[in-house]
């Protein structure tokens, strides 16, 4: 790990009309670090992440990438910096196979018979690169030509993750990656997240499933009414403490008292 963070979000404020969605949300993440972002419904998790992916522009606050201040005016700018977001249920086209999904919107082309004015999909190259990608992330699928809708929820999630890191992503944001999965599939998705970390990719997970976050995250950040109220190393906290931050509205200093009770 290098010494300064890959991404820093500092004191982000964002209002939608009269609604103050974010009022002092902060976060920093190191290369290859996995962060769990938790908070009650309407705590501002989604808005916070949409600021990072360029969907929303903050009213105030700073975004830094590798220590340098940046602004993301649209999702394209954020993506070009190496930030990818996996949206719930929005990631894949069910009627296309794994190869087509991994390269969707970024298809590789070739010129048949060297004709300069016709370009067709380079299926062989895309297939080969997909197989390499899945091997690198240790993702097993029966065939990369399988339609996504024929796969289990866990496998679909794996393909969505693979797709997000196929093009040099430095940070992947996952919105509830395990919410729709059968129990035995959750482990596989968490394994893939561990593989990403080993590959030096940073991950932010938004999840209501605290046990998954405790399984895989290095640090946990708690958001409450649009403000970062606690940051804890996973090893140095307990599920009870995090739950209290989320639901109790306990201030950090009060929680020290509460946990010592």
């Amino acid at each position: 790990m290098s010494n300064h963070p890959l991404i820093e979000l500092i004191d982000i404020h964002k209002a939608f009309g009269p609604v103050q969605a974010l009022s002092g949300a902060s976060l920093s993440i190191m290369p290859g670090e996995v962060i769990g972002l938790v908070g009650d419904n309407a705590a501002g998790k989604s808005t916070f992440m949409k600021v990072l992916t360029g969907v929303h522009q903050p009213d105030s606050g700073e975004i830094k990438v590798n220590g340098e201040r940046v602004t993301f005016r649209d999702p394209g700018e954020s993506r070009r910096t190496g930030i990818e977001m996996i949206y719930q249920n929005l990631a894949l086209a069910p009627n296309l196979d794994v190869v087509a999904n991994v390269f969707l919107g970024r298809e590789l082309l070739r010129h048949p018979l060297s004709l300069p004015f016709i370009s067709v999909l380079d299926e062989n190259l895309m297939e080969q690169k997909t197989i390499e990608l899945l091997q690198r992330l240790k993702i097993n699928v029966k065939s990369v030509r399988l339609l996504v809708e024929k796969m289990s929820g866990g496998q679909q999630q794996a393909v969505a993750i693979a797709r997000s890191v196929a093009f040099e992503a430095k940070l992947v944001i996952m919105d509830e990656p395990t919410a729709a999965l059968a129990v035995k599939e959750v482990g596989k998705v968490l394994d893939i997240i561990n593989n990403l970390r080993a590959d030096g990719v940073s991950v932010i997970i938004i999840s209501h499933r605290l046990q998954d976050i405790f399984n895989v995250a290095d640090r946990i950040i708690v958001l409450q009414t649009g403000k970062t109220i606690a940051t804890r190393r996973t090893k140095e906290t307990t599920m009870d403490e995090i739950v209290k931050f989320i639901v109790g509205g306990v201030q950090p200093e009060l929680s020290q008292i509460a946990s010592g009770r």
């Binding site: 949206y87 087509a100 919107g105 970024r106 298809e107």
Partner: peptide
């Protein structure tokens, strides 16, 4: 079957949102 255009048509028919988020 062979072109990027066709691939994008299938993608839109299958899941318009995912096509949109894929930059199509």
């Amino acid at each position: 079957v062979k072109t990027r255009f066709g691939r994008h048509v299938y993608a839109i028919g299958g899941n318009q949102d995912s096509a949109l988020f894929s930059g199509i």
